[in-house]
Simulated assay, not measured.
Amino acid sequence: MQKRVAVIGGGIIGATAAFYLSYLDQSQSLSVTLFDDDLGQATKAASGIISPWLSKRRNKRWYALAKQGAAFYPKLIADAKLGPNVYQQTGTIVTRKQPDDLESLYQEAMIKLQHTPAMQDVELLSAREVGRRLPFLTNPPAGIFVKGGAKIDGRCFIEELLKQAQKQRLIVRRQRVFFDKSGQIRTSMGLEKFDTIIVATGAWMKGTLKPLNYLVKIRPQKGQLIDLAVNPLRYRSRLPVLMPEGSSDIIPFSQRKLVVGATHENDGGFDLKATAKAQTLLLKNAQVFDNRLKAGQIMQTRVGTRAYTDDFAPFFGRLPSNPNILLGGGLGSSGLTTGPIIGYLLAKAIVDEQWGHWEAFTRPLSNYII
């Protein structure tokens, strides 16, 4: 008899978990259903960067998880047969405003490179050398090039990953579902019982677990980014990403589209309306480096809702009082890096029926769920 598994939430954790629950060799014994209503999902609104190694964050668990997540991507891309429209390893250029800070960061990068194969290589670049790598910039900054850095299109990632999973065994149901007090799931077909459930509903997790009398210490944050149409004559294919200190990331995602973002709006809550204020801010941030960009080039503004914890760290694990329920969330702005590895670890635990020791990556769930 097949074991019934439900994944609630089709963002980056849920989609990755659902894929591996359908893909891993031992998963033939599972019947897997993913529930998702697509509302406000941060992943589908995002184009982002996989390059955690030179982050200013000093949370050791977060760094261990992010480092593992970045190294995991080539396996995931190969397993799911995802193409360059989803993921491109083009390198990233990280900047610092002060030359001394840039030099210190370079020394740190060289030390990390010795025991971080995923970084591949590191170069200290002058402003002129950055301009050669990103020829569309009119005011290039000096920076550090990390060869192993990559960029990813969140919407394409989710859609292609679930498409591959559905070719295996995954069932996708586009609806919002709720727990009843007994731990069953209330769906459009009535109450349904599953043997194991993964909850990965992002900023909405507080509401998801409320019927089970759990309080989730999580808050929503609104994020906006803009897509600009650009002149393909100024853009080569596979350009690196620019990560300026204290400003918005600049992601040349194709020869015709430039992505700038994203905002971090703590008072935005679950509001999904694009705002002129955010458009203006993001455009001005990009114009510092390319003064030819104009408001008329903005094709669209994408809006999503991130989930943040009090310590800005992701969490995942198994609910001690409801061991058939697993959680993953609180990704914040590093979701594209940390989400897939969390989804994989949760799926692997279910398939192998061996619950991992994840203390190196996350604090106990009791720090986030009470």
Results as ranks from 00 to 15, higher is better:
M1D: 01
I8G: 01
I8Q: 02
I13R: 13
I13L: 11
G14I: 09
F19C: 05
F19V: 08
L30G: 00
V32A: 02
T33P: 06
F35E: 04
I50G: 05
I50F: 06
S51R: 02
W53Q: 13
R57S: 12
N59W: 08
K60T: 03
R61C: 04
F72G: 07
D79A: 14
P84S: 08
Q88K: 15
K97R: 14
K97L: 14
Q107A: 14
E108A: 11
E108T: 05
E108R: 15
Q114A: 15
P117S: 08
P117H: 10
E123I: 11
E123H: 13
L124A: 11
V130K: 06
R133Q: 14
L137P: 03
T138W: 02
G143T: 00
K147Q: 15
G148E: 01
G149P: 07
K151R: 15
K151L: 13
G154C: 10
K163R: 15
Q168W: 04
I171K: 12
R174L: 13
Q175Y: 05
R176I: 00
R176T: 03
D180G: 06
S182Q: 14
L191S: 10
T201M: 11
G202W: 13
Y214A: 07
K217P: 05
I218M: 14
I218S: 12
I218F: 05
Q221P: 00
P232R: 14
P240T: 09
M243L: 14
M243K: 08
S247D: 07
D249P: 00
K257Y: 09
G261H: 05
K273D: 07
K277H: 08
T280R: 15
V288H: 10
L293F: 02
K294G: 00
R306Y: 07
R306M: 10
F315E: 01
F315V: 01
I325N: 00
L326C: 06
G330D: 01
S334T: 13
I341P: 09
K348E: 05
A349R: 00
I350D: 00
I350K: 01
D352P: 01
E353P: 00
W358A: 04
I369V: 06
I369H: 00
I370K: 14
